[in-house]
Simulated scan of single mutants.
Amino acid sequence: MSGATGRRKHSPAVYRRRRLVLLILLIVIAVAVWLVIAQPWRGSASENDTTTPPSATQDAASELPVPDNAAGSSAVANPDPSASVIVEPAPEASAVTTAEPCIARDVKVEALTDSDTYGSGQNPQLSMRVTNNGTEDCGLNVGTTTQVFTITSGSDTWWRSTDCQTEPSDMVVLLAAGQTVTSAAPLTWDRTRSSVESCGPDASRQAAPGGGATYRLDVEIGGIRSLEPKQILLY
């Protein structure tokens, strides 16, 4: 007999078990690679991720509406017979019914202009800013029915935004405590004297003197007036 011992040959069942283990291992590796590449959990996360859109009240309160065809603005039209009718806001304007009305002492109203001095041919751009300095949220009518822009020189009232305003509307919004809102777009004063009789396209208006003349802008919204006028100079 030879001194070398022959290697024992395994049965077919052992080879089958080894092939089965190898197959399972390959399947596990393939599934792991697919999970890394496909990341199927992303789709379900996106479907379940529903971000609540801002409420209509928040959208409305981010900017103040602009008076339509105010006296001496960029467009002056004939007075609308229905201009005195208060137009109720659409549902998406979100009239506030649960919040308490704002208290005047808690609301700061400021008159704003785009410059302090205007050269010949430059028309002042008028805006306002409203801040709720109170500790509680409150409701305020910021619609164009409650907005008034007034230009004076001394005791003489030169211009008022409501003289030729058309289709004013109400918009009651929620002012959060500490929130500040500003005009969505400025009004343009064309440096003329306004009146309810001077709203037609052919109406004649007196031009405001320049040469360094001083004028003041006062604003009002929701029955609350600005405490300090904004002074401007016309040249």
Score class of each variant (00 low, 15 high):
171 M>P: 05
128 M>E: 06
103 I>M: 12
67 P>S: 02
202 D>M: 07
57 T>W: 00
222 G>E: 03
170 D>L: 12
31 V>S: 13
98 T>A: 05
210 G>M: 07
198 S>P: 03
46 S>F: 05
194 S>C: 02
81 P>R: 10
113 T>V: 14
92 E>M: 00
94 S>Y: 04
157 T>V: 07
212 G>I: 08
62 S>R: 09
197 E>A: 10
10 H>I: 09
68 D>V: 01
44 S>G: 07
39 Q>V: 12
181 V>A: 06
66 V>D: 00
138 C>A: 10
168 P>C: 03
36 V>R: 10
182 T>E: 13
39 Q>G: 10
128 M>H: 08
81 P>A: 04
150 T>A: 00
85 V>T: 10
162 T>K: 00
163 D>R: 03
81 P>K: 04
114 D>Y: 05
213 A>Q: 14
25 L>R: 11
84 S>C: 06
58 Q>Y: 09
124 P>R: 03
119 G>R: 04
159 W>F: 05
60 A>L: 03
235 Y>L: 15
78 N>H: 06
41 W>F: 11
100 E>Y: 12
194 S>W: 00
218 D>R: 09
124 P>L: 08
215 Y>E: 02
12 P>D: 06
100 E>T: 15
106 D>S: 14
34 W>N: 14
138 C>H: 12
144 T>V: 03
12 P>M: 05
49 D>Q: 14
149 F>G: 09
224 I>R: 10
142 V>R: 00
79 P>E: 07
140 L>K: 13
25 L>V: 15
74 S>V: 09
135 T>V: 13
161 S>R: 08
88 E>T: 11
14 V>K: 07
107 V>D: 02
103 I>D: 11
217 L>E: 08
92 E>C: 02
79 P>D: 11
107 V>T: 13
36 V>H: 05
90 A>R: 02
143 G>T: 08
219 V>L: 01
77 A>D: 09
76 V>E: 10
79 P>I: 13
149 F>Y: 15
94 S>C: 01
153 S>V: 05
154 G>T: 01
154 G>Y: 01
228 E>R: 13
3 G>V: 15
12 P>S: 09
108 K>S: 12
30 A>G: 10
42 R>E: 11
188 T>K: 03
137 D>T: 03
83 A>I: 00
30 A>F: 11
143 G>K: 05
94 S>Q: 06
